[in-house]
Simulated assay, not measured.
Amino acid sequence: MTEPFVRPMFYMPFASGGVHPHCDMAREHTKVWARTMGLFDPEYEELSDGAWSEARCIAADIPKFAAMTTPDVAPAELELGADWHTATWFFDDVFLPGCLKSGDRADTRARLDRLLAFMPVRPQMPPLLPNNALERCLTDLWARSAWRMSEDWRRRITGAWRTYFAGSLWEVDNLQRERHPDYIDYFQMRRDFGAAGIAAALLEMACGTEIRQDVYDSQPFQALFQAYRDLADLNNDVVSYAKDEASGETANNAVNALQRQLGCSLQQAADLTNDLMTSRVHTLQTAADEDLPALLHERGTSRHEQQQIARYIRALQTWLAGSYDWHETTARYGAPAAGLHLPTGLGTSAARCLQNLHLSGARR
């Protein structure tokens, strides 16, 4: 897959935790789990026009994504996270092409509403019986996840899925109508059809640290959270541009939206997207290091809770660094970026630090 522009060097000051030592076992677990759920049934490869298959899923190495974004969690949490991410990617690769083929918006909405019913905030009796692979996945994942978490958390993650589904409908509409949104419209909706909000809720569970609802709703936390979502989504847009171009889906890519808005070259749009990402890193840092601690102190939050919140924020930052690294290595988006290739592995963090010092000085 040929890169249509020289991929910019991303500013990422947060330390990656490397790869979870349980990664190989998570790969085997998730492969067996996906087969058991029926995710690799031949009908789904046909429905996705070849975008989804067992071979492609294994090549993408979704368990490694989980292992790089949550390198310190318990092995069982890693396996659970890898399963959740695999189901999410299945939705993205199989559901959207299916919608484009059917063209029946009412049926699409009904199917989405039914999927949400497999993630009830409160137990429902009798339980809904699954009819397809994705419904089987959600039945299993919800049973393994939801009932050890609070009702507030369950509302948050179901809300994140509802937002993701609504954003996906908007994404499908763009493709069906050949509509190219302006950049502001795109940027507002990109958070919705990205799955970073789901991943953030899953991270609370994996870390064993729930964010209290009043803290979650506060302005500093939301500033941090939205910056995290933007970084995850915009990084994906830059790295996946060649894949989106090959599949005719650049209408739903920030680089394309910015190029059309400004009338600039594709390279300039990619570089400007990277500048925006750098700015969002600084927003996240300020909220995490200054604004949120000041609010917690003002509210008299206990020392223990402050430490738990700080632990979760560090996990979000590690998640971002791991996501950036995974995007550079996965077969899902083709060849690694051209240009500077930093060494990876034990003892190479200094190289990343030097790169980030250069970028920080250049872009601040």
Rank of each mutant, 00 (worst) to 15 (best):
R148S: 11
W153L: 00
R154C: 06
R154T: 08
R155Y: 07
R155C: 07
I157M: 01
I157L: 00
I157W: 00
W161C: 02
T163W: 12
F165K: 03
A166S: 11
G167P: 06
L169N: 04
N174F: 04
Q176L: 14
R177N: 15
R177K: 15
R179A: 10
D185T: 15
Q188R: 10
R190T: 05
R191I: 11
G194K: 08
A196L: 08
A196E: 14
A200K: 01
A200E: 10
L202S: 01
E204T: 03
E204K: 04
E204Y: 11
M205A: 10
M205W: 12
A206G: 11
A206W: 13
G208M: 06
E210W: 04
R212Y: 09
D214K: 03
D214T: 08
D214A: 05
V215T: 11
V215A: 13
D217V: 02
Q219H: 11
F221N: 03
F221P: 05
F225Y: 15
Q226G: 03
Q226K: 11
Y228A: 08
Y228P: 01
A232E: 11
D233C: 14
L234H: 12
N235A: 13
N236M: 05
V238S: 10
V238C: 09
V238T: 12
S240W: 00
K243Q: 06
D244M: 01
E245S: 06
E245H: 04
S247E: 14
A251C: 09
N253M: 01
N253F: 05
A254S: 12
V255M: 03
L258A: 02
L262V: 01
G263E: 10
C264K: 08
C264I: 15
